[in-house]
Design a protein around this nucleic acid. Structure first.
Length: 908
RNA sequence: GGGCGCUUAGCUCAGUUGGUCAGAGCAGCUCGCUUACAACGAGCAGGUCGUCGGUUCGAGUCCGGCAGCGCCCA
């Protein structure tokens, strides 16, 4: 976002925590081997600082907006909720995405990889309240000189909405700094010059513009309706924000009088809502109650006449089989109320207390209004809980409570961030039409390329289960306001039905500050004047537009055309019903298409008890300590080892393995590159044994891919190794194309270890020497490492970059992704050669280990028995084998059967 | 209640279209300072692939039932 743009400078302010090596040069580089760029003692310490700085300086990850759409890979990065806890789950999923981004970049795409911060919404408000000890009171007027108390006071300080929003912005700015530092340290290759926040002016314009367009088409509308309501937050919440929790309650059996003089008993867990009862319902097939349907009964305590209806949703098995419908006890009540066109008698207010009502007035008719009022007056003003207790007492006294309450545990709807069961109140909210889109949304869900594929089920079951349109209004303070005002009539009553909308060119607007066209500021809240819409948008109403916000929708059409629809939406699975779903809705409504081609759904990090890590559970692992202990590459290795969509148990052991791998990469490269130097033209005649060996295998720039295929590889063992590596390149490429980063890493790693354990040991002797075979070995080593570093680069960017820098200019992350073509052998060499040689090598090692000898211990004689076809392969590496095992004689004996090896150790 | 996923060595996990697929790493045990690597390396041992049944010449691999765990939805 232009308005958030910041200079992208290398972070030089951070103290260098790298080892204080007395020999370190001014640039922070350690002492190197003579005549080479290879450090004497390669180390992971300090790599993060060094390379993070260089990448920023070089602009390695900058998006090139001059490239056409076909050469762009665009990512709809999840903006983390900055006021939430920063934990190892972030590291996990963001690293997986980064690996894909780096792969695409190396494949030649320019990667649009923006970063955003979600500072909208309740989490921020809540954190500000706790952090500063304040609460927002819209009736307080703005204090320009306000500063928060140094210590949070015991009772929260009421402050104005603008002051509150200022504090929100101040705190989120701090939080964003913490996230940015961590993400940079993690080596995320995001383009730090394209960052946005969900409360920025750009995001506000996008949200308000999108809203205005929906409203103009009627796809967004305002309606008075029963609304899920959190009494503590005093705000409505959406279906997507619900969760069921099992809580303890009790069935209360209540007696209703029938008009024929008899009685009917119902069971309810919410006797406090009796005054809000508007009907009874039984299942149409339920013989017990069929005679009652169509008649009326009279409520206990209040003597209100209510009808008895039949409805399929009534469960004959539940309680007495006939239910009391209240406005509103739960979502089923809403359904009954709507479908059976029942009366409305709401009693629960927005703060969760029973509101006063007047029995005998219209809508509250009673057979005995005085008695009803006397009862109700004992409930009015009480909380729902208190009212329940009192109601039970009253029902007991009147004799309408049958038996004792029967304890049950039942699922109750909660706001996912809330602490008390939701109430349903009638209120006026803005809605986005989603239900009418259901079929199209399902179609889009099938169009999207899901990784893993089964995650689509979550989307489908959510879309299938939509019960109503999407409520996007929230009665909160820190969020994006609706660009809407209402006219006030002569009595000061708002005209809710014909809102005044802002013009797109004026966005963003804040209706509590800005004035609608044709009005002046002094008409605010005055009769005949106007009033601003007091609500803000649901956080998802903004987050659902991240592709549009980051892509410069309507503000930078050139950019937008190059990045939208995006290539990838990475995200976690629990927000499929919110973020993914709402993004699809918005894109469909605005653009008529999916917002991205593919979705990569990451799993969760579980603690050792297989519980999801979350702040509330107190089992969160903070990533900074992990990065300190193991290093970034090690932590990234752990993250990249897990497949998409798979919940993974947090395991620090994996990081140790990753660290070992990173060190090994440095060590192996050090060996290869320092051998390489022997081929440098030094004028000592070293190259005489290798005619035409003029050092062409020296520093080479692979920006345009390998162009030196097989130049000096003339030894079959070397050629076989490169042939095997070519298949690894193919596999890794296919895996990454299919978003299978873990497989790509695993294949590469597996090859690398066998390369180190077997190949390196086999050719070590040759690599040290000065012969044609030596040049071949050194060339093959160089070429293999050159390819492997590029294969590792997406996963272990720091170690790969460090090792790469020893004999390349430029970043490995700008280098071309390897292709099997650049490893095309110049001579035929069966790839199985290495497997066979490795097998023999292991047999000799085993013999030495069993004899408790060192690996250098001399061997008198090795006898290899195998079919002739296999022996041919052994023959290819016979000299290397002798060298690596320190064997005097290697005999090959043809033999039909398994490979057999006999080892006779020397005397030492 | 409907759906999805998982169940492979003590632990964490690989095992693409059924045919050396019974694997890796860690932990354990035994060795070894070898000029890339001792914050390392080499080697050993470890599982009737949850369970029952089916398809097949052949099943961790496909199908069905069951059990346990986790999640999504109602």
């Amino acid at each position: 976002m232009p308005d958030d743009q910041q200079p992208d400078a290398p972070d030089s302010s951070r103290p260098d925590t790298a080892r204080a090596d007395a020999s370190a040069t001014a640039s922070g580089r350690a002492r190197t081997l003579p005549g080479t760029g290879v450090p004497d003692k390669p180390s992971l310490e300090g790599l993060e600082e060094r390379w993070t700085g260089s990448w920023a300086q070089w602009g390695t990850y900058r998006f090139d907006r001059s490239r056409p759409r076909a050469e762009v890979f665009s990512i709809d990065t999840p903006p983390p909720t900055v006021s939430g806890s920063l934990h190892v789950g972030h590291v996990f999923s963001y690293t997986q995405t980064d690996a894909l981004a780096r792969f695409q970049r190396m494949r030649g795409k320019t990667v649009f990889y923006p970063i955003g911060w979600d500072d909208n919404g309740l989490p921020t408000e809540r954190r500000v309240q706790h952090y500063f000890g304040v609460r927002c009171d819209p009736s307080v007027s703005y204090d320009p000189d306000f500063s928060p108390p140094p210590e949070p006071p015991g009772t929260p300080l009421a402050i104005s909405r603008p002051n509150f929003v200022e504090l929100c912005r101040r705190l989120t700015a701090e939080d964003e700094g913490v996230f940015e530092q961590m993400f940079r340290r993690l080596g995320l290759s995001v383009d730090w010059s394209t960052r946005y926040t969900t409360v920025s002016a750009g995001a506000q314009r996008a949200s308000q513009r999108a809203f205005l367009r929906l409203a103009a088409r009627g796809a967004a509308y305002r309606q008075e309706a029963p609304t899920l309501w959190d009494v503590d937050f005093a705000s409505s919440v959406a279906q997507a924000e619900l969760e069921d929790r099992e809580i303890a309650g009790a069935y209360h059996r209540l007696r209703f009088d029938r008009s024929d003089g008899g009685a009917v008993e119902i069971e309810t867990t919410r006797p406090e809502l009796l005054a809000a009862c508007v009907a009874l319902v039984a299942h149409p097939d339920d013989e017990r109650y069929r005679p009652l349907v169509g008649t009326t009964v009279r409520t206990p305590l209040f003597g209100v006449e209510v009808p008895v209806h039949a409805h399929a949703l009534a469960d004959p098995e539940k309680g007495s089989g006939i239910a009391m419908v209240c406005t509103f006890g739960d979502l089923t009540d809403v359904t009954w109320w709507r479908e059976l066109k029942l009366a409305t008698r709401t009693i629960v207010g927005r703060h969760g207390r029973l509101e006063p009502v007047r029995f005998g007035s219209p809508g509250w008719e009673s057979a005995d209004a005085g008695r009803a009022q006397a009862h109700y007056d004992q409930l009015a003003g009480l909380t729902v809980r208190q009212a329940q207790r009192r109601s039970v007492e009253l029902l007991g006294e009147s004799g309408d409570l049958v038996g004792q309450p029967r304890p049950v545990t039942h699922p109750v709807k909660f706001y996912e961030k809330g602490e008390r069961p939701l109430e349903i109140v009638s209120s006026r909210q803005w809605y986005v039409a989603t239900v009418a889109l259901r079929d199209r949304l399902l179609e889009l869900g099938r169009e999207l390329d899901w990784h893993p594929g089964f995650m689509r089920q979550r989307y489908e079951s959510w879309v299938d289960g939509l019960t109503g349109d999407w409520n996007i209004s929230r009665q909160r303070f820190f969020g994006i306001p609706f660009p809407v005002w209402y006219r006030l009539d002569a009595e000061g009553r708002p005209d809710e039905d014909t809102p005044l909308f802002a013009a797109e060119r004026d966005l963003p607007v804040d209706p509590s500050v800005d004035v609608p066209a044709g009005y002046s500021a002094d008409q605010r809240d005055a009769p005949g004047g106007f009033t601003g819409d007091p609500d803000v948008m649901d956080t998802w109403a903004t987050s659902s537009l991240t592709p549009q916000i980051a892509g410069g929708w309507e503000e930078d059409p050139d950019l937008f055309a190059r990045v939208f629809p995006m290539d990838l939406r990475p995200q976690a699975h629990e927000i499929i019903r919110t973020w993914l779903f709402s993004s699809v809705v918005r894109s469909e409504l605005e653009h008529g298409c999916l917002p991205w081609r593919a979705a990569a759904i990451s799993g969760w990090i579980l603690d050792p008890d297989r519980k999801k890590m979350s702040k509330s559970k107190g089992n969160v692992v903070v990533p900074t300590a992990l990065l300190d202990t193991h290093g970034t590459d090690a932590v990234r290795y752990w993250a990249c080892s897990a497949r998409l969509g798979v919940d993974t148990i947090f395991d620090e052991q994996q990081m140790k393995i990753g660290r070992r791998l990173a060190i090994k990469i440095l060590q192996a490269t050090k060996f290869a590159v320092s051998r390489l130097e022997q081929d440098e033209p030094t004028g000592d005649g070293a190259g005489t044994a290798a005619a035409g060996d003029d050092g062409a295998a020296g520093p080479a720039d692979h920006q345009s891919g390998g162009d030196q295929s097989g130049g000096d590889v003339r030894h079959p063992v070397d050629a076989a190794m490169l042939a095997r590596l070519a298949t690894v390149v193919t596999e890794a490429t296919e895996a990454l194309d299919a978003f299978e980063h873990a497989r790509a890493l695993e294949r590469t790693e597996q090859f690398f270890w066998s390369f180190c354990d077997d190949y390196l040991e086999l050719v070590k002797g040759r690599a040290y020497g000065m012969s044609t075979g030596s040049t071949s070995a050194r060339t093959a080593l160089e070429r293999a490492l050159d390819v492997m570093l590029r294969l590792f680069a997406p996963f272990l960017p720091f170690a790969a970059e460090e090792a790469w820098s020893w004999w390349h200019d430029g970043s490995v992350h700008s280098a071309a992704w390897p292709s099997p073509g650049e490893l095309e052998p110049t001579m035929p060499a069966p790839p199985e050669t290495l497997d066979v040689l490795g097998e023999v090598l292991r047999e000799v090692r085993r013999a030495k280990t069993v004899a408790k000898r060192s690996m250098r211990w001399p061997v008198e004689r090795v006898e290899v028995r195998a079919p002739a076809r296999v022996l041919e392969l052994v023959e290819l590496g016979r000299a290397d084998l002798a060298d690596a095992t320190n064997a005097a004689v290697i005999e090959l004996r043809a033999h039909d059967g398994e490979l057999g090896v006999t080892v006779e150790l020397g005397d030492g």
